[in-house]
């Protein structure tokens, strides 16, 4: 591994914030050597408890994350917070405003807040976010909070990579069903009805409870439904109580599950393969001529994709006559 990376990792483990920030950028940007960083820190991780916070825009996720973080800091825990916001599909830029809601804690040395844009590349968010969680874990954080809008496959995958998922809803966004119908219900370990100082919070909470009752087997434990208000501070201590109980359990647990590891290895492999394929298809210039043909009305996208695929030779030599692949 590059010496610069080694120094950064050493400094990060000594608690240097700038080195931690630099390593996150290196991995998030997929800069040269990012895999070496991940390989190097992987053996020591698994100590941090990862809490996922998801919910629709405006539900109060960032504010709630800030409140939870403040209480954990008071108890002497160290935290990493990853706040994910969408990139613009048009410009590729992003406006990341979650930090704005956590200003009370922003200079506390026990917390490290990092905003992350989705960047929208090939299911890359999930892996990149997971990598950032691991770096914070390696930096010695006790708890990593990741908050993201739970919309779309990619973002749901992000939170499902965490140890415990909190789904935040609030009264006034239609009925309870509206808030939780997009397939996020299944991944939540805990439901929070935030802004409970507003009208309709208890109706919403009972609707969610009723739905959970319908969807769960008899005798099976149902996820709790809690009510909070960051404005009046109601219920937040109780929420933190449930979360710290889970954190303590997790300390006794450990070991990643086989299914998760399989998905991750397959995911990394897919990404690598798609990148390689794309590079080869772009390279021989056939893509552009296929596009020309389609635009001139002489072809269709389906045949073009098939033909391009047929031209790519993944394996160029048979076993026994192995030659060095010129396209590495």
């Amino acid at each position: 591994m590059e010496e610069r990376m080694e120094t950064l990792i050493r400094e990060m483990k000594n608690g240097d914030q700038r080195s931690l920030a630099r390593l996150i950028s290196c991995v998030e940007d997929r800069q040269a050597g990012w895999k070496d960083v991940m390989k190097s820190i992987y053996p020591g991780i698994g100590k941090a408890c990862v809490l996922g916070i998801t919910g629709s825009p405006g539900a109060g996720k960032s504010t709630l994350a800030g409140e939870i973080a403040r209480r954990f800091l008071d108890r002497g825990l160290s935290l990493g917070i990853i706040a994910v916001d969408p990139s613009s599909p048009y410009s590729g830029g992003a406006l990341l405003g979650d930090r704005l809601r956590m200003r009370d804690i922003s200079t506390n040395p026990g917390v490290f807040i990092r905003s992350m844009a989705t960047r929208g590349a090939l299911g890359g968010l999930c892996q990149a976010a997971r990598d950032v969680m691991r770096i914070m874990d390696a930096a010695g954080k006790d708890v990593v909070l990741i908050e993201t809008v739970g919309v779309g496959q990619d973002e749901i995958e992000v939170v499902s990579a965490s140890d415990y998922v909190v789904l935040v809803t609030f009264p006034g966004q239609g009925d309870g069903i509206q808030a939780i119908k997009a397939g996020v219900m299944e991944i939540a370990d805990l439901f929070v009805v935030n802004k409970c100082d507003r009208d309709g919070a208890d109706v919403m909470a009972s609707e969610i409870s009723a739905m959970l009752e319908l969807s769960s087997e008899a005798g099976q434990e149902r996820p709790p439904v809690m009510m909070t208000s960051a404005f009046t501070q109601e219920g937040i201590d109780d929420l933190c109580g449930v979360l710290s109980e889970f954190i303590n359990q997790k300390k006794a647990r450990g070991k990643p599950q086989r299914d998760h590891v399989r998905n991750e290895v397959l995911g990394l492999l897919e990404r690598e393969m798609v990148g390689m394929l794309r590079e080869r298809i772009m390279e021989n210039g056939k893509l552009e001529s296929a596009l020309d043909a389609i635009l001139e009305g002489k072809g269709d996208p389906y045949s073009a994709a098939e033909e391009l695929m047929a031209r790519v030779h993944l394996v160029r030599s048979r076993p026994g006559e192995r030659k060095e692949d010129t396209r590495g």
């Binding site: 930090r99 704005l100 200003r103």
Partner: peptide, 11 residues
């Protein structure tokens, strides 16, 4: 943001 930058706003 529209120029393609990632902008973090502190408030």
């Amino acid at each position: 943001r529209d120029e393609g930058f990632e902008v973090i706003y502190t408030g």
